[in-house]
Every structure is written in C-alpha cells, then in structure tokens.
C-alpha cells in the first residue's frame, strides 16, 4: 500500500465530487457537509466513488462500508481512504 498524503487525497476527492458528481466546479464543498443527505448527489454516486477510489488510490472499499451513514461527508470519505 503506497503512503497517501491526506491533503492530496482530500483535494483530489473534493475536485472529483464537484466536477463529476455535483457537476458544478464552482461549488464550495466543505469538509463536513452532508453530500448525499444534503441532496447534492444521489446514492448512485457512492458506487461511482468506490470505482474512483480504487482507480485513483488503489484502495478497495468493501460494500458494507459504502453506505450513506459512513460516506456522507468529505471527512468520512478521506478517513476511509486513508485506512487503505
């Protein structure tokens, strides 16, 4: 498992979410806002996120961890990726 830089992971995921999932690059996505519960993206996006994380960071997040409760904020996503 390569060492991942947390800030890089955070900004990579933030850019991915605003560009690919919210489709609004100007959106100011904060670290702790509810992305799915706040209606910014639907739960389909969790599966998209899983593919992105596998390709980008080589991290496989098992299905039971891909839930709205566990992956609703940027902080939660970053923390999960950093676990490897």
């Amino acid at each position: 498992m390569p060492n991942l830089d947390e800030n890089l992971v955070r900004e990579t995921i933030r850019a991915y979410i605003t560009h690919e999932l919210i489709r609004d690059p100007d959106y100011d996505l904060t670290d702790d806002e509810g992305i799915i519960t706040g209606g910014l993206m639907d739960s389909f996006a969790l599966a998209d996120f899983a593919v992105f994380v596998e390709q980008e960071f080589g991290v496989y997040i098992p299905d039971p961890d891909l839930t709205v409760e566990k992956m609703d904020t940027l902080n939660q996503m970053v923390a999960r990726v950093m676990q490897g």
Binding site: R23, D24, D26, Y27, D28, G38, G39, L40, M41, D42
Partner: peptide, 20 residues
Amino acid sequence: KAIAKAIRQAVARKSDITVG
C-alpha cells in the same frame, strides 16, 4: 452559490430527486 445550494437541497428534501 447559496441560492444554487438551496435549490438542490430543497428539491432533494421535498421530492427525493437529485438535481443534475
């Protein structure tokens, strides 16, 4: 930006639809 955000949130909360 705040209005755009409010639109997305209002539609999601009131209709279970995600605006693209």
